[in-house]
Design a protein around this nucleic acid. Structure first.
Lengths: 196, 196
DNA sequence: CACTCATTCGGACTAGAGTCCGGTTATGCC
DNA sequence: GGCATAACCGGACTCTAGTCCGAATGAGTG
């Protein structure tokens, strides 16, 4: 969506940069909520159609702005050192992921919220979400948990910007406390059922 | 928000009914997505201001339409027979709640989605959500689970209309299968951590 | 350099949610 | 029944996301 096509015209590339830079600056100055897309295109000096053709919609713009961080995180998961990367036990990897992801969302609450705000279910169909889910599902399955698919979705549902923002800003929990609590929960979700 | 004030003028009551009836009918006829609030006020024969003063916003209207079912469910939890109502073991009550709630959302996906669609975090601050959370938190705590508050939120985050709609319509899971899987997950969340 | 044409630009336009306020009407009190 | 007042009504208005299409421009080609 935000990715440039294989071959991109020079003006297109220039304008994409302008939009991203303008958005980044405005969001930083005034807070995301106070910035309209008209503000962004005005500051970028491009037309409205340009922004929408490039990024699809508001959420797409947020995704593009988060892209770099997100790729870095995905790379640490695929190729980095344990416990986040391959090599550690599934449960360890899962809790490491959860802690890292909580931090990522906490550091970018507004932007992530914007990237998750669109038509119902859109969040669940984005490429990056599929990645997180597949990762969690794989780890849960490896740990022998029942219903790994459903549990992966539930876990990630608890890690939306909406939920984390609420815990942090409305309930006053600290990122540290949250990371611990959610990591414990993930660990519990991963353990095999105790037959009785 | 949708509740009438202690004493309500006759015309106000009449218009509230008209709006609710018109909305219910139009939603049933065309599907919620295809109905605008202008359609509703036109069909109800009232002005736009009337709708918004009464219901606050789109989500408020949905809440008002769901009100009856929601109250009934809450009543079964507070005063009904076990395992949903008081009397059963906490874990049993929790899984019973989860199953019932999945069914409730599955039967009203669109409306519940509409009631949860508004400014970020709004869902978490509604009265009814507080009720569900408090109920889950209480049961989780009674069962001896760690972090009952956080786990209640995570569990409920997995039961949004967005998520359930995705499981049902995009992944093709059946309500029955879903209820089972989520109930198992809830049970696991409720059990005490296995020290190792 | 001239030409072609696919790609991109950008601003006017649409749609729908939510606000505002002058006019109207119900209700309680004499 | 007549009156004062608070509550309510409703439609014109605003604000913003998202669409559309004629004009402009970049990039190969001979």
């Amino acid at each position: 969506m935000g990715e440039p096509p294989a071959t991109e015209r020079a003006d297109a590339a220039r304008n994409r940069r302008r939009v991203l830079d303008a958005a980044k600056q405005l969001f930083g100055e005034r807070g995301i909520a106070a910035v309209t897309l008209d503000d962004v295109v005005a500051a970028a000096g491009v037309g409205k159609g340009t922004l929408f053709r490039r990024f699809g919609d508001k959420a797409g713009l947020a995704v593009a702005l988060l892209d770099e961080q997100e790729r870095a995180l995905q790379d640490r998961i695929l190729n980095g050192p344990p416990p986040l990367g391959p090599g550690a036990e599934p449960v360890e990897r899962l809790t490491a992921f959860v802690r890292t992801y909580v931090g990522y969302v906490a550091r970018n609450t507004e932007l992530v919220a914007m990237s998750q705000t669109s038509s119902p279910g859109a969040r669940l169909r984005t490429g990056s979400h599929q990645f997180w889910r597949q990762h969690c599902e794989f780890l849960l399955a490896s740990a022998g948990a029942a219903d790994p698919g459903v549990r992966a979705d539930i876990l990630l549902a608890g890690l939306t910007a909406e939920q984390i923002g609420y815990w942090l800003h409305d309930q006053g929990r600290t990122p540290r406390h949250l990371a611990n609590a959610v990591a414990r929960t993930a660990q519990q979700l991963a353990s095999s059922p105790t037959p009785r």
